[in-house]
């Protein structure tokens, strides 16, 4: 047991009390927490992230830098007003598009109705087939074209002897008329059939031949 226990207690009471400043306690706190933190950190496992992560981070950083470098300016007041008007316009456009959609549907309906109006509705009818035999006069169709080449040959020969006359507008007009008649003649000849009398067609051909004769005569008299 200690004999001078009171002496020590008395001495302690005579000691000056001292309270540290708040700052000291704060520093102590920080040091204590740093110590704990450092201790915790040192216990953490360390690892290296893959290169891709670093690259993407650097890209993002450079993008942000570029954006920061862009010029910044405040738009004039009327710009906002214009944007508002344009936004209203877009709304109108949207409504116009809607209207157009309806109109196009309506137009399609009208077209379908119109087409159905013009569609040919087939008529109903009865049909039957019969057979018979008849005797017809044999017609020499080829006879109608026999002289054509000869006429052209004569005209060509005459034109070779007098090319000036054949180049005249009057001659050219008659030549055109002759060619037109030949065209009509060929059309008729194509229609003629060995199994028909072709009476009407032959009358037409006669008329064409008579007219051709007149034209050829006039052409020859132009040359001579």
């Amino acid at each position: 047991m200690e004999k001078n226990r009171n002496i020590l207690d008395e001495a302690l009471t005579h000691l000056r009390s001292f309270s540290p400043k708040e700052k000291i306690w704060n520093n102590l706190d920080q040091q204590l927490s740093d110590t704990v933190l450092n201790k915790g950190l040192s216990e953490l496992k360390t690892f290296d992230p893959p290169d891709v992560i670093w690259e993407s981070i650097s890209m993002e950083l450079s993008g942000k830098e570029k954006l920061d470098k862009l010029y910044k300016f405040d738009p004039p007041e009327n710009l906002w007003a214009n944007i508002e008007i344009q936004l209203d316009g877009r709304a109108n456009k949207k409504s116009k598009i809607e209207t157009l959609k309806w109109l196009s549907w309506a137009a399609a309906a009208v077209i379908i109705l119109a087409i159905s109006y013009f569609l040919i509705v087939p008529a109903n009818h009865q049909s039957n087939i019969s057979y018979s035999q008849e005797t017809i006069e044999h017609v020499n169709i080829n006879g109608w074209a026999e002289d054509d080449n000869e006429i052209m040959l004569v005209l060509n020969q005459l034109c070779a002897s007098n090319p000036v006359a054949c180049a005249s507008p009057d001659f050219k007009a008659k030549e055109k008329e002759l060619n037109d008649l030949d065209k009509q003649k060929k059309e008729i000849l194509n229609r003629m059939s060995a199994y028909d009398s072709n009476k009407d067609l032959q009358l037409m051909l006669t008329k064409i031949e008579l007219e051709k004769n007149e034209i050829v005569k006039q052409m020859i008299s132009n040359i001579m």
């Binding site: 039957n128 019969s130 057979y131 018979s132 035999q133 017809i136 006069e137 044999h138 060995a194 199994y195």
Partner: peptide, 9 residues
């Protein structure tokens, strides 16, 4: 003259 066959529908 020629004899012809006539088919009529």
């Amino acid at each position: 003259q020629t004899n012809v066959q006539v088919v009529t529908k």
